[in-house]
Design a protein around this nucleic acid. Structure first.
Length: 659
DNA sequence: GTAGGGTTAG
């Protein structure tokens, strides 16, 4: 099985190509010079030429004329509007590392078309090495295209190159970045089987994936154990990742203890470590600890940067210290650290969750007025805040405004929009958003399904809700019990008992423990709908959770119209529940058998079973049997059994009187 | 070794 096949199960549902990559270079970008790839290459070439001028025996010596040809060729490729033809024209001048540098140049500019085109060309002309694969895979990860990364990996012809640690790290990092933690672990195990020797980078890559998954911390611990078993020692980056994992999993004490352990091991904390620990303090808004930490940090000679101050703002906002938050926001503005929406979002979210909707709105307006750069987070927070505080129409309006002005969508935003439209019963817009999701191949998550199902139920579109639940279950999402229970009842009442039963089964097989009352409701519903075979299954599996009256109703119905061959089994099941069996049920069974002379054998078995277990038929059933026993050709036998039962019941009754 | 790892928002 190749890596693609291994991961394709998880990848077939599309990834979340969130906010398209930045159009301009990141601020701290390593290519700040005009032609970085070029300088990088040429620095090396010159170093070689000048450091070893006498080694004329080396055929690799690059003469200035040669280097200026390379310089020109690189510039030409980077500026080209027709990559393929430019590449063919300069073929022979450039070396593999030149192509790699150009690849990085395009990659850092987020010019994905060129990245792919160049890489294709390099593959076709066999101008690549481990660094080419590693870089290409990394960029495919950044551009949210893990599929292409996997294809590139699978295309590597050389087996030993496939377990090159750098390539493997890139691919694992690509999967992790795109939320495919599970597949990255599977692939990691495969790679180890194939001969990969993981290093610290491998482990920190995988550890960073633990931040956003369920039980992330315990998975992180497994990885730490593994790296230690391999004789590797945790370095500053690994500690940084661990601290971030603790913070994301709300494990403040663990974060503190790793922070201490790291210092004890002689590794001085840097800004990454401080910001992660600060982030851990933000969970419960522990501003006392946060402020002390920032002071410690300053004493150690570190200067708080944008991330530290922004995280401190998060601590204040979470802790409800809105005055302090506002002061800090003003400071960030002065420092030029509030050019994007992050700090505003932190404060808006804090305000909104504390119920200060008007202040949230004011800050949102201020942000707009200041033309703060936005990727949609602020809208998402504001729309949710409006909906939460009951300002549904306003929430819907803002959602519409966002859609009219922005063309950036990710799953969270789409869910936010859906919620806003569902809240106002705007079915058309709901459908449009679903269309957008489809078009962009963004797959719905648990929240999406939950929003839709709740909405469909509210609109009494029960069958649609049912189909949505089926879809949700089919994709492996845990079903919400309350929502399903109410849908089960509604489906039953609106003439879809089989669908109700299907929902019940999905719920039952997905969860270990269910609320007790659901089984009885399901049983009642199936009995009412005459689906007695299904009812029998529910009854058999959940007898101790079902009231006697519901069991009785089921049993009587079953005797009247259930599968006649299962009647005796139903009695045995009832007997196992150790509850008194209502005589009406025996009566109903006897009547049923009387109408089916060909089932005499079953009737006799039932009567004998009754005698063995101390039951006896009531007088009306006995009379009925005696009157009709000629029908069965077993007149004598039936009379004997009945008289035995009769005597036994007399004996029992007299014993009770004595007591 | 031309390469790969950690910090803040809905």
């Amino acid at each position: 099985m190749d890596a693609l096949a291994l991961a394709v199960g998880c990848l077939s549902s599309p990834t979340t190509p969130f906010l398209s990559p930045p159009r301009s270079l990141p601020r701290n970008h390593k290519y700040t010079r005009r032609n970085p790839a070029l300088s990088k290459t040429l620095d090396k070439s010159h170093a070689f030429t000048f450091a070893a001028p006498s080694s004329s025996s080396s055929p690799a010596t690059i003469r200035p004329s040669n280097s200026s040809a390379r310089r020109a060729a690189i510039a030409e490729v980077e500026a080209s509007t027709d990559l393929d033809s430019t590449l063919s024209r300069v073929e022979g001048i450039l070396q593999v590392q030149d192509y790699n540098n150009i690849l990085c140049y395009f990659g850092e500019l987020r010019r994905w078309t060129e990245v792919s085109q160049l890489f294709d060309w390099m593959q076709k002309h066999k101008k690549l090495n481990f660094a080419s694969y590693s870089s290409f895979i990394k960029y495919m990860g950044i551009s949210h295209n893990p599929m292409k990364a996997l294809q590139a990996y699978d295309s590597i012809p050389d087996k030993s190159l496939k377990v090159n640690v750098s390539i493997c790290n890139s691919l694992l990092g690509c999967l992790v970045k795109n939320g495919r933690f599970e597949s990255s672990i599977k692939l990691f195990n495969r790679m180890k089987d194939d001969g990969l020797s993981p290093d610290l980078v491998t482990y920190s890559t995988l550890l960073s994936g633990c931040r956003k998954v369920k039980n992330g911390y315990s998975k992180a611990m497994q990885l730490v154990q593994e790296l230690e078993n391999k004789g590797l020692h945790m370095d500053g980056v690994i500690y940084g990742t661990l601290l971030a994992t603790c913070a994301s999993n709300n494990l403040c004490e663990e974060a503190e203890s790793y922070f201490q352990q790291m210092k004890d091991e002689g590794c001085p904390p840097n800004l990454f470590h401080y910001s992660s620990l600060l982030n851990a303090y933000s969970v419960d808004g522990n501003y006392m600890k946060a402020e002390k930490l920032v002071n410690d940090m300053k004493s150690s000679g570190l200067v708080p940067n944008k991330v530290i101050l922004t995280t401190l703002l998060k601590v204040y906002a979470r802790g409800g210290l809105f005055e302090k938050s506002k002061e800090l926001l003003a400071e960030l503005e002065l420092l030029g650290y509030a050019e994007d929406e992050m700090p505003y979002c932190l404060l808006m979210d804090g305000l909104a969750k504390a119920g200060h909707i008007h202040e949230t709105k004011a800050l949102f307006a201020e942000m707009k007025q200041k033309h703060v750069k936005s990727d949609g987070y602020a809208h998402s927070i504001m729309i949710s805040a409006l909906c939460r505080s009951g300002l549904l129409k306003e929430g819907r309006m803002l959602a519409k405004e966002f859609e009219a002005n922005c063309n950036k969508y990710d799953l969270v935003m789409l869910n936010t929009l859906l919620r806003a439209y569902c809240n106002t019963g705007d079915m058309d817009s709901v459908m449009q958003v679903l269309g957008k999701m489809d078009k962009r191949a963004i797959s719905p998550d648990w929240n999406t399904f939950h929003i839709l199902i709740k909405y469909f139920c509210k609109e009494k579109l029960y069958h649609l809700a049912y189909r949505t639940i089926e879809d949700m279950h089919g994709r492996g999402h845990q079903l919400n019990e309350d929502l399903c229970s109410s849908l089960i009842l509604q489906l039953g009442q609106s003439g879809f008992p089989s669908e109700a039963f299907s929902v019940y089964n999905m719920l039952r097989y997905g969860k270990r423990t269910l609320c007790k009352s659901i089984h009885e409701k399901m049983l009642d519903l199936l009995v009412a709908a005459g689906l007695l075979k299904d009812a029998y299954v529910v009854m058999k599996d959940n007898m101790e959770r079902i009231s006697t009256s519901s069991l009785d109703k089921f049993a009587v119905s079953f005797m009247r119209s259930g599968n006649i061959n299962l009647i005796n089994d139903v009695f045995k099941a009832l007997h196992r529940s150790r509850r008194q069996i209502n005589p009406d049920i025996f009566h109903a069974a006897v009547s049923r058998y009387l109408g089916k002379p060909e089932k005499t054998e079953l009737l006799l078995q039932l009567l004998q079973w009754m005698s063995r277990h101390g039951y006896c038929v009531d007088s009306s059933s006995r009379n009925l049997l005696l009157k009709n026993s000629h029908l069965f050709g077993q007149k004598q036998l039936i009379a004997e059994i009945l008289s035995k039962q009769h005597m036994m019941s007399r004996k029992l009754r007299s014993q009770e009187v004595k007591k």
